[in-house]
């Protein structure tokens, strides 16, 4: 069973929810930090690094002396990663999606693929938990290939909690694509609702079942339950606005350890989550997703 935590923007308490759900999981769990631009689950994870591996994506490179300046490679590239001005093509690796089109179309095999390092995956182990974290290299613009690399390393037979990227773009898609349920974290403010709506539209488009967790409940006056009902999505739990929680987070502590009143809330979230997803009862649609 894979559970994803997401939110329309950063700073809503997504990581708080993810690390505390992993900590309170009923079975051993893989925590997958897919917020690869700014991974931070490790700050709350007491475990040793056991593995670290680079992740690459295939990008074209020019073999010297072969190009006949036909321009086909630039015409086939859908991502403007190849520019052609009558001489050898100009390659922009950071725009490349690794589709292989340019080397395939080149009539003289002037383009070869090489692996460009886009980031790394780090694995940490603790007694009942494993943290698998992706970290994008500075200057790299595409997180989906790295997010998929993180998810490939998870044990398919274990529970998994995915800490998704903030925002509602293709990285969110990559993080939640094969999940059984997405919990969207929202704050009860107008801005919070706006971000939630953006994330909801991406989640709906991918056909992944979802529910909402309200964080810092009591902070704004907005009626999140009514707003969610209008969107046809249920609010599973509310985490209250609390100084104790904020203090625990600031110290890199697991909030559940320092604030016992949170324990029933998390127990309810887990039981709701498991009852919705057990035995594959969730209607997960099969997604056809280009794996690049």
């Amino acid at each position: 069973m894979r559970l994803a935590i997401a939110s329309g923007k950063g700073g809503t308490g997504k990581t708080l929810l993810a690390v505390n759900l992993a900590w309170s999981a009923p079975r051993p769990v893989d925590l997958l930090d897919c917020d690869v631009e700014e991974p931070n689950c490790h700050l709350f994870f007491k475990g040793q690094v056991v593995r670290r591996e680079p992740v690459t994506k295939p990008v074209p490179t020019l073999v010297p002396g072969r190009c006949t300046a036909c321009g086909l490679c630039a015409r086939i590239c859908q991502f403007k990663a190849v520019a052609f001005f009558g001489k050898e093509p100009l390659l922009f690796a950071d725009l490349c999606h690794g589709c292989g089109g340019c080397s395939w179309v080149c009539p003289v095999n002037a383009l070869m693929e090489r692996g460009e390092e886009i980031g790394e995956v780090e694995v940490r182990e603790a007694p009942r938990q494993r943290l698998i974290q992706g970290r994008l290299r500075v200057g790299q613009a595409q997180s989906p290939p790295l997010i998929r690399a993180v998810k490939r390393r998870a044990d398919p037979d274990r529970l998994a909690v995915v800490d998704g990227p903030p925002g509602a773009d293709c990285s969110l898609g990559a993080a939640i694509a094969d999940c059984d349920l997405v919990l969207l974290v929202a704050e009860p403010t107008n801005f919070g609702m706006y971000d939630l709506e953006l994330a909801l539209s991406t989640v709906h488009r991918l056909g992944v079942p979802c529910a909402v967790i309200v964080n810092r409940a009591g902070r704004g006056r907005l009626d999140v339950r009514a707003a969610c009902a209008r969107h046809g999505v249920e609010v599973l739990a509310e985490i209250p606005e609390s100084e104790e929680i904020a203090r625990a987070v600031a110290r890199g502590r697991i909030a559940l350890e320092s604030v016992p009143s949170l324990q029933p809330i998390f127990a309810k979230i887990w039981s709701d989550v498991l009852s919705r997803t057990r035995d594959g009862r969730s209607e997960r649609r099969v997604l056809h997703h280009a794996d690049v």
Binding site: F79, K80, A81, A83, F85, L90, F92, L95, A141
Partner: peptide, 15 residues
């Protein structure tokens, strides 16, 4: 209209 690579496309137009 391009999400990324606007400068490259503009340069192609200039060429």
């Amino acid at each position: 209209a391009a999400l990324q690579g606007a400068g490259i496309q503009a340069a192609e137009l200039a060429a």
